[in-house]
Design a protein around this nucleic acid. Structure first.
Lengths: 357, 357
DNA sequence: CCCGGCGCTGACAACGTTGTCCAGCAGTTA
DNA sequence: TAACTGCTGGACAACGTTGTCAGCGCCGGG
């Protein structure tokens, strides 16, 4: 058998399992050239209706599906963006992720995402894996504080936007919520309702937002001329055990706090549990939490929170990312979205009469 | 300058923006052959320590990062799997997604995910886009009822596992929760506490789990010899407006229901709101919800639920997927995970005295 | 009748990587 | 000294697609 048609795939006698028809196969079956198939698949003009029909028939008959890996290799753009966040299971990140996905979808891009679990090494590993995949852009909720490893990638044109926390040691776009201002408002709110001994329960102090929220706490206390005792401030991992212990310690101290400010939604939920478990005669403790959460209004009392719109955070970041991808130049920008205090009852509880003075 | 080395990229005089160094560039800089760079990058044996060092230096100096698109094209495997679900922002899917991601990570694979928004066309579009990317496998929470479009893909070796709902008109692996049994338990629980007129508030009846839960409701009522009035059953979209209207109608009817069974977490939350807003003298209405949700224990009364472990669902599905990818054969399997009734108070409320008879 | 132009089609190279295969070289043995 | 072995390194093709460019047939005008 003479190999007259060099186009036929006769070089590989045994097709390995999982092999799929290619444009070459479609072309052979339809009796047209390779490029014509490509034109049909991509909806390019310049193909006779009759030819197009023949090609379409061959495509469906063979179950052909374009191999985007090859396309990407050829075109250089992947039409996909990467999202690296802390934990997809955290209700704060679900809406954010979904918002990023919607924007990506509007731009015809797919979303690849991964959870860093708040581990800088894992963040870097993920980000670099995404870069190896040649994502067009990255949305990163950073876990680490040094992102210089991204310099070659950004220089090569990978658009990058940081969310929730700024980039470390590198100049990049960032979209943040006003953690400092929101926290100051929260604590000022408690002070306005008569509290003087206010506890702060925060996340690991290395996390930017956690540090900012602590700063806001101190600012509000300072502005009111109130002292801050070391025992009133606790930062660390947000696992229920630690938060529970810290909250209990503050509540059972000789001079107990009369109000608590919880630094994020995980902490707030645990604090709500701790307060709910207190023996009945205990004086009610005021509480304001950073981050809104579902059902906060249905608890009794309703939980007063500083709300930040995580979906809006994601949408803003993704919009900025695609503007960069569309060629928008200029220096890196830092956008700060406002927060909003939602009073629901728990933050408006007055301190017990004995400690008002 | 004579172009003695045919390897140098001198054919493209102007490198387009965003171009990156390739192995060829690294090889040229290190003064070695292309394949040697490949060997170093992939940690293959057969390279002198000295040569390896030279190559590594060139890699860091140029900021080289392997182009996985090319690698994928060559190797045929992408080391990535796709996850198509309904809505990433739904708290039910966050843990599921995270669980799938963890399993993927353990197998060195990346996760690409997309939300179908419960739209079959969008599901298909997403799934086929993922197939074009040549994901190794798919985890799908189906929105549609006809997945024959997947036949060519599955024949070509794309491992596919359906989750939460079975595949439509095609034979495929599936991991489900016991919606029927769980619902029957829920309704039987209410009956055991004296209720006779029990309302069912469910999702769109076209959704498999919704239909199963309705079936469980009917089964429990039948087994207790209780009649079911049309007015006690309402199915449809789970947006708060519809659920609110349906629940209100059941509660304000001439012969009002004394207990409600809510078909999923979205519905339950809305029902909790409706019940909370009822004027004070109204008799308390019992409630059991399908799906557990955060803080269900802190409401008063606590909300009795049928819990299904969405993370376990995802983990099980992903495990099965990778077993298939590792070559596990055999007929498609359908795994059903048990549900668990968690009594917290709302399901144990007795009916008002007047209607017990 | 011839020629220019246009519309459609296909051959070919290139994208960056990996697998195959062979060449070169140093060390060992007859 | 020649042959042989084992190991390192490099040339080349192939993965499936798209961009470039050239060719072919046909039509209308000169």
């Amino acid at each position: 058998m003479t190999d007259t048609a060099p186009g036929t795939a006769s070089r590989t006698p045994t097709r390995r399992y999982g092999t799929r028809p290619t444009m070459k196969d479609v072309a052979a079956r339809a009796g047209v050239g390779l490029k014509t198939v490509s034109r049909v698949v991509n909806g390019e003009p310049g193909v006779t209706p009759d030819t197009e029909r023949r090609v379409q028939e061959a495509i469906t008959a063979l179950g052909f599906r374009r191999n985007d890996s090859a396309r990407i290799l050829r075109k250089g753009r992947t039409a996909s963006i990467g999202l690296v966040l802390e934990d997809l299971a955290d209700p704060f990140y679900g809406p954010l992720s979904r918002a990023v996905e919607e924007v990506a979808r509007a731009h015809g891009a797919l979303l690849i995402n991964g959870s860093s679990a708040e581990d800088p090494d894992r963040e870097q590993e993920l980000v670099l894996a995404l870069c190896a995949r040649r994502v067009d852009g990255l949305v990163i909720i950073p876990a680490g504080h040094d992102h210089r490893y991204l310099a070659p990638e950004m220089a090569a044109g990978v658009a990058t936007v940081f969310v929730d926390r700024p980039a470390g040691r590198i100049d990049a776009d960032a979209v943040l919520a006003d953690s400092f201002g929101g926290s100051r408002d929260a604590v000022a709110h408690l002070i306005a309702h008569g509290h003087r001994r206010i506890g702060f329960l925060g996340d690991l102090p290395g996390i930017h937002t956690a540090a900012e929220r602590l700063r806001g706490y101190h600012a509000a206390m300072n502005e009111a001329g109130l002292p801050v005792h070391d025992a009133w401030v606790s930062t660390g991992p947000t696992d229920p055990e630690r938060v529970r212990a810290a909250a209990t310690a503050m509540l059972n101290a000789a001079e107990p706090v009369t109000a608590l400010f919880a630094g994020n939604n995980r902490v707030t939920v645990t604090v709500v549990r701790v307060l709910a478990e207190r023996p009945a005669p205990a004086a009610p403790v005021a509480l304001v939490g950073f981050d809104d959460f579902e059902l906060a209004d249905l608890l009794s009392p309703g939980i007063t929170v500083i709300a930040q719109d995580s979906a809006q955070l994601g949408r803003t970041a993704a919009d900025l990312l695609f503007r960069r991808l569309d060629g928008a130049g200029g220096d890196p920008r830092q956008l700060v979205l406002p927060t909003r205090l939602i009073p629901r009852g728990s933050g408006e509880l007055p301190p017990p009469a004995t400690s008002t003075a």
